[in-house]
Amino acid sequence: MKKFIVLKAFMAVLIGFMGLSLISCNNDGPDIPPVKLQDVIGNYKGRLITSQGNNKAEAVVSFAVKKDTIKFADLPVKEIVKAVVKDPAKTEAALTAIGKIKYNLNYTAVVNASYNAVELTFTPKTLELNIPMDGAVKKTIVTFTAKEKGFYVGQNYAMKFGLVAEKITVDGTVLTPYEMIKYDFPYCIKN
């Protein structure tokens, strides 16, 4: 009889602990702070993966995000210049002559329904470059598009987005053949 009472008491305690452990599971997971549109604003540093066909290059870039614009003080344009110039030695000389390229990328921002990320929709401008080549200057216009939305996540203060250099025009003529150049910013952290 004592064994039966001890067994009942042990089962009651065991069921009580199981019930408490299941209740504590209701609130597991990290607390994700809600974001506001203003949270996007700041200075960032991150990886840029530039790809054209099977060729890929990586660089670390810095940029500033303002109210409705992402400002690059030095946008890497090596692949664009290489597509126009074709000769590797002349490409390096042209890049040196061009120097740093400033580019502003306009965006509109909306906080998503869960309030845990800011969605960025881009309206890229064309980029105009004057590329020196064989004693002449080639007026080059690059048409950028943004195929996907970008995101800012408040949990880790990171931004992700991408651009595509869809078309290049040199001295009024569309560059053909031309394979699109993708600019992917997979993980950029706010400083």
Rank of each mutant, 00 (worst) to 15 (best):
I70H: 00
V35H: 01
E79L: 12
I98V: 12
D31M: 09
D28I: 15
E58M: 14
Y103R: 00
V110P: 01
N104E: 15
T96W: 03
N55E: 11
I98R: 04
N55D: 11
N106V: 05
S21H: 11
A83Q: 05
G29M: 10
A73C: 02
K66V: 10
V110G: 00
K45D: 01
K45Q: 08
K45V: 02
C25P: 02
A83E: 08
P76L: 05
Q52P: 06
F63S: 00
V61R: 09
A89H: 11
N55T: 13
L37Y: 07
K67N: 14
I32K: 13
R47I: 14
V61Q: 06
E92S: 07
I101N: 01
V65K: 01
E58P: 10
L48V: 05
V77T: 08
N54L: 14
D28R: 15
L95I: 08
V40A: 04
A73W: 06
K78E: 04
N43R: 14
Y103C: 01
A109N: 01
K100R: 13
I23L: 10
N106S: 12
Q52D: 05
V110L: 10
G99Q: 03
K67L: 14
N55Q: 12
F63D: 02
D74I: 07
S51I: 06
I101F: 00
A83N: 04
D68F: 12
V60S: 12
L75N: 01
A109L: 05
G29T: 09
D31W: 13
N27Q: 15
Y103K: 01
V110E: 12
D74V: 08
S24V: 06
L75W: 05
V40T: 06
P88K: 09
V84W: 05
A89C: 06
L75G: 02
D39A: 06
N26W: 14
N104F: 07
A89P: 08
L22Q: 13
G29Q: 11
S21P: 05
V40N: 00
V81M: 00
A59P: 06
N43S: 13
C25S: 09
A73R: 12
D74N: 15
Y44Q: 08
Q52L: 12
T96M: 04
R47G: 13
A109E: 03
N106L: 10
N26C: 13
D39C: 05
I98F: 08
I49H: 01
A64C: 06
T69E: 12
T108Y: 07
R47W: 09
V35L: 07
I41E: 10
N54W: 09
K36C: 09
Y103D: 07
V84E: 07
N54T: 15
K82P: 02
G99W: 05
I32Q: 09
A109K: 02
I101A: 01
V60C: 03
E92D: 11
G29I: 11
G42Y: 08
V65A: 04
Y107S: 02
L48S: 00
N54H: 10
V61D: 05
A64M: 11
R47H: 11
K102I: 15
I49M: 13
D87Q: 11
T108D: 09
S21Q: 12
Y107T: 03
I70L: 07
V40D: 02
P88G: 03
K102A: 15
N54D: 15
K71S: 12
C25K: 09
C25I: 10
L22T: 06
F63A: 00
P34V: 15
T91M: 01
D68Q: 08
P76T: 04
N55W: 11
K56E: 13
